[in-house]
């Protein structure tokens, strides 16, 4: 079974590398999120936590950006030259693919 079947994908090239956002939307909510790519974020497991922080979010750029900003503010990790806006842009592209 294709894990990514039914998921929409968005890409953004941040300064630290490519961010690949995959989302599944049901009833206008994110029900599944995968963040992949070769960007730099230390400690790395925070990317798994970022995925979890986005589950259940309304499928809108505003809500996703807000959750990402809160995540960056509250969690203790380093992501050189890559901020919440970079991740938000990958998700915006995924939402566009979803709606397009």
């Amino acid at each position: 079974m294709d894990r990514f079947a039914g998921m929409s994908e968005g890409l953004h090239k941040a300064k630290s590398g490519l961010i690949r956002a995959l989302i599944k939307v049901e009833d206008n909510r994110l029900t599944d999120v995968v963040i992949g790519g070769d960007f730099i974020l230390v400690p790395e497991y925070y990317i798994d936590r970022m995925e979890k922080a986005l589950i259940g979010a309304e499928a809108s750029n505003r809500e996703i950006s807000k959750r990402l900003e809160v995540f960056f503010e509250n969690e203790s990790f380093q992501s050189p030259a890559t901020g919440p806006d970079d991740f938000a842009r990958a998700f915006a592209a995924a939402l566009e693919a979803q709606n397009g």
């Binding site: 294709d2 894990r3 999120v33 995968v34 400690p43 790395e44 936590r49 979890k52």
Partner: peptide
């Protein structure tokens, strides 16, 4: 690790 996850909640964490 991405495709073997059943959901985002089943992912590995270093700890």
């Amino acid at each position: 690790r991405h495709s073997s996850k059943k959901t985002s909640f089943g992912s590995y964490e270093s700890s």
